[in-house]
Design a protein around this nucleic acid. Structure first.
Lengths: 170, 170
DNA sequence: CTTGACTCCCGAACCGGTTCGGCACTTTAT
DNA sequence: ATAAAGTGCCGAACCGGTTCGGGAGTCAAG
């Protein structure tokens, strides 16, 4: 019954590829305390145990639902310490959910407003001679009158041009 | 017919209060080129013309629907220069809308997943003795198996604790 | 031996609107 | 006269996950 032990450990690049993450990110996770520092081979290379992949995926997953690396570190540390932080985790997740729903409401409002604005603009452009000013921005200024000065800070993360990472498709 | 001219100009704090913005922000807008530098009184204080309020509101509005200060500066500069950037503005708004809708879809997915997770967790907690570990995180790790390693970077702007600004209510 | 691919390390840059620090001056109130 | 607001200026900090720079060591293939 000798276990197959396909591959007892993996190196940084290997794990990174498997998890769909950069090596830099792995190091970062380790520094942040969400990924245990693996043993090192004689040359100093990291040798990740097989379950590290699961951990990285867990982290990615948690990040994607709104957890912070620091929060995660706190949780995982508590878990490692024998404590059962489940109730805390549940509360945290609840807060995250509320947060997401709040953001969602805001974003819906923005979308609706943006749609209206675009529609109005198109109508306006349709009856504006070529190269003439249609005063789109001014229309924006008008609509603000109606909505009063709410909208203190939009600030949902903006993404501009990526360098190499080909993260299109979605 | 002497125009009432309620108040031909306002100072920084005044305008800031009226627009629901900090004085710092006004300065910032000026530096960024989305708010014209007003004339100065003898002591060097800014004296904003009455229409500055409209401009600030316009900026806030544009920000809230996803425009960037830099984009806005570019547009307003063009407009001031006599050009009619309306077509560009329209295109930009279209891109913003697409962006918002994309973000919206992502966020909806996150919300749904988060809801499921929370629900599962509650069920799990219900049948787990007090203070015992329920393995919530592990459940998270499992569900990632199903979803495969998508979710490269969550990164919708996170907001933590505000200092003075009381922007709750919404 | 020389490429080229991996690896290590760690701090700095990035994004972008806002806030803060710190110091000097002016105006208004007490 | 003196304290309390208001204003000016401007660079740095903030948030947070990721990437980048860049110098050095390691290892297998040609």
């Amino acid at each position: 019954m000798v276990a197959p032990a396909k591959k007892a450990f993996m190196r940084a690049g290997e794990l990174a590829r498997a998890a769909g993450v950069s090596v830099d990110t792995l190091h970062h996770y380790e520094r942040k305390g969400v990924l245990a520092a693996p043993r090192r081979s004689a040359n100093g290379y990291r040798e990740y145990p097989a379950d590290a992949l699961g951990r990285v995926r867990l982290v990615r997953r948690a990040l994607s639902i709104g957890f912070t690396l620091d929060e995660l570190a706190r949780i995982l540390r508590a878990r490692g310490g024998g404590r059962a932080p489940c109730r805390e985790v549940r509360a945290l997740a609840g807060a995250k959910l509320a947060d997401v729903e709040s953001r969602l409401r805001e974003l819906l409002l923005v979308r609706d407003e943006l749609r209206v604005v675009v529609k109005e603009w198109d109508a306006k452009l349709a009856r504006t001679p070529e190269g003439e000013r249609a005063g789109l921005l001014d229309a924006l200024a008008v609509s603000v009158e109606l909505n009063e000065a709410r909208a203190p800070a939009p600030v949902w993360r903006r993404r501009k041009g990526r360098k190499k990472g080909e993260d299109e498709e979605y």
